[in-house]
Simulated scan of single mutants.
Amino acid sequence: MFTRRNFLATSLGALAAPALTACSRSSNAAPAGAQLLTATDVHVADYPTVTAVKWIGQTLEEKTGGRLRLRQYHSGQLGRESEAIDMARFGAIDITRVYSGALNNAFPLTQGLCLPYVFESVAHMRRALDGGVADTVLQGFETRDLVGLAIYDSGARCFYNTKHPIVEPKDLHGLKLRVASSDIFIQLMRLLGANPTPMSLGDTFSGMETHMIDGAENNMRSFHSSRHFEAAHYWSQSDHSYAPDVLLMSRQSFDALSPADRTLVIETARESVQVMREQWDASENTARQAVADFGIKFNEVDMPAFRKAADPLLQRYLQQPELAALTRRIRDFA
């Protein structure tokens, strides 16, 4: 029977085959036994996660004399994040970068990275991830046909909308806000009084332009690269989550590598975290300046009020022993 799974595998095979043929026929032909890895991301070509994975590909190619190569499909060329996760699980693609919120249901430990006001700052998050939290979460992917390669941070998630500044939770009441398909974020928006509307990142701009939604929540870099600032002119610095991104590899693809190559891929992926962070910091500052020059109205929020409003959700999730233990470890790095 021709299923969706078959379709994804067949479609990617059709895309990747010409690339592999082109590599073998180029003047810089790949050596015998060369392997072409495919990677996906919904973000644009100069987004820090995309450039970090590009760095991984370049490093692997240099260290193996061209035997391991990587081809990227950025800007959502191969579909949405939910589709990319399935494609990686079934071996249709090799590597994908996805937002941790999209992984919450299948991989419960990722919920600890997404809960509201668990991290105090980007610096706190990085200390926690580097201090062993990342390793614990990445190990959890082994049960579902995936290999956790690295965790990339993703800045502070804040509210932006087309209507007015958001200073207190009551300012969210009645607003229709785009959220990713994550139970945590859907529940959080409802708790704060907003009307959560699950929607892909690619559909959000048109959703605001056509008044299907009033705004969204995301990080500054995505606010800029998606050009959402052209539709939503109010940015409210709520810092309600620092939910990071996760770099995953197909277990099938990983197991097909030699033991030495598996070690090389993991080591290179972990090294790419610092590459990503440096590019993130620089590009986030550039993005903030760009949207400020456009005329975006920035405001601070009543942080104690937001923390208090979000706390019931946090406490509900912390009833789970594993999440409570992970959160205590995160708090230790504050």
Rank of each mutant, 00 (worst) to 15 (best):
A17Y: 03
A39D: 14
A39C: 15
D46W: 07
K54A: 15
W55F: 01
I56D: 10
L60M: 02
E62S: 08
L70A: 06
Q72C: 07
Y73N: 02
H74P: 13
R80N: 05
S82Q: 15
E83F: 01
S100L: 07
A102F: 06
N104V: 11
P116I: 04
E120Q: 15
S121E: 07
Q139H: 05
E142Y: 02
V147G: 01
C158F: 00
T162E: 09
H164K: 14
K170W: 10
K170E: 04
G174R: 01
G174F: 01
S182P: 00
I184M: 11
I186P: 04
Q187V: 00
L191I: 03
G193M: 13
G193N: 09
G193W: 10
D214K: 13
R221A: 07
S222E: 15
R227M: 05
E230L: 15
H233D: 13
S238N: 08
S241N: 08
A243H: 02
P244N: 08
M249V: 04
S253R: 03
L257R: 06
P259T: 11
R262F: 04
T263P: 02
V265W: 04
A269D: 11
S272F: 00
V273W: 03
E278V: 09
Q279Y: 03
D281R: 02
A282W: 06
E284S: 14
T286H: 10
V291L: 06
G295T: 02
G295Q: 08
M303Y: 10
P304K: 15
A305F: 09
Y317P: 06
Q319F: 10
T327M: 00
